[in-house]
Amino acid sequence: MNTMLRINRDTCGYCGTCVAVCPEDALELIDAYLSLERECIACGICARACPLGALEVVHEE
């Protein structure tokens, strides 16, 4: 099974809250673009902290 972080770009407010709580320094806010720069461990902390609910850990078979 494959887990990954899905960023809903229509919802994302590009605020960087997810960046501050990411334990892996995997996310980066590059101006108005949230980028997954390094390996994500799919812990889901960013998805919880997001004020808008723009992030989702998805599990794929």
Partner: peptide, 26 residues
């Protein structure tokens, strides 16, 4: 560099904010 605080983190200081101590704001 504000909330994200990535520069210090990449220089070796742990700046990660615990989930319960980040105020999620709108």
């Amino acid at each position: 560099d504000g909330t994200e605080a990535q520069f210090a983190r990449r220089a070796g200081l742990d700046t990660t904010v615990p989930l319960r101590e980040i105020m999620s704001c709108t």
